[in-house]
């Protein structure tokens, strides 16, 4: 169970982005979080990915409340949650090849020897060819790079996957391919999914249930 219980989060000294948000993702479940742009969904995704420390509220992973934040959550908890961001260009280290990007989590956790085998396993799963794996981010398209970013999130076989607007920049075919890759992984491992986005049609089709984000500041969009 990945559980956010009345969580408040924000950035230093500014008003919180959201207050008292609660959300639960059960193992094997896929939850879609729907909301307009700029309402704090991405911050919530970062909290759920254990990358952002909430200011208040409880964050519970598999029954253990995460209290031991120092600068980040403990490594073994962090790596249990994989995350994919909206913009592959900024989410990939421009100096690494795609293969290195995918292998990075294994190297970072001292399991270098498994890296080649895992990359060889993941690349076809997300639809990357051997030729693409030797290239650097600026030599591939957004869609190809996002495939690598998804593979990286799956490298350590996380029990939860957070997709923050994973397909917002992508065309229909790549979107469908990436969603299929996520679903294949979930069928194989029984991982839970939190898909954050604004595309109602997509999230309704993709997820078991969708949650509407309503607690957002009123948009001053209407003239």
């Amino acid at each position: 169970m990945l559980e956010l219980d009345t969580v408040t989060a924000g950035y230093e000294r500014r008003a919180p982005v959201f207050r008292g948000a609660s959300l639960t993702v059960a193992p094997g479940e896929s939850v879609g979080l729907l909301g307009p742009s700029g309402c704090g969904k991405s911050t919530l995704a970062r909290v759920a990915a254990l990358l952002h420390r909430p200011d208040a509220g409880r964050l519970v992973l598999d029954g253990t409340e995460i209290r031991a934040w120092r600068h980040r959550a403990p490594r073994e908890l962090r790596t249990a949650v994989g995350v994919v961001f909206q913009q592959p260009r900024t989410a990939a280290d421009p100096r690494l090849t795609l293969a290195e990007i995918i292998a990075e989590p294994l190297r970072a956790t001292g399991r270098r020897t498994e890296a080649d085998a895992r990359v060889a396993e993941l690349a076809p799963a997300v639809g990357l060819t051997a030729d693409l794996l030797t290239r650097r981010p600026h030599e591939v398209s957004d869609g190809q790079l996002q495939r690598a970013c998804l593979a990286r999130a799956l490298t350590l076989r996380p029990r939860w996957l957070i997709c923050d607007e994973m397909t917002a920049m992508l065309d229909a075919s790549t979107t469908a391919a990436l969603v299929a890759a996520v679903e294949a992984y979930r069928t194989e491992t029984g991982a839970g999914l939190l898909a954050v986005g604004h595309d109602r049609v997509l999230l309704n089709r993709w997820c078991d249930r969708t949650v509407e984000w309503k607690d957002c500041l009123p948009a001053e969009d209407t003239p």
Binding site: Q87, P105, T155
Partner: peptide, 13 residues
């Protein structure tokens, strides 16, 4: 940048 977030999420110290 998100790539730092991604590295942290991948267990990087």
């Amino acid at each position: 940048r998100p790539f730092v977030d991604a590295a942290v999420s991948g267990g990087a110290s």
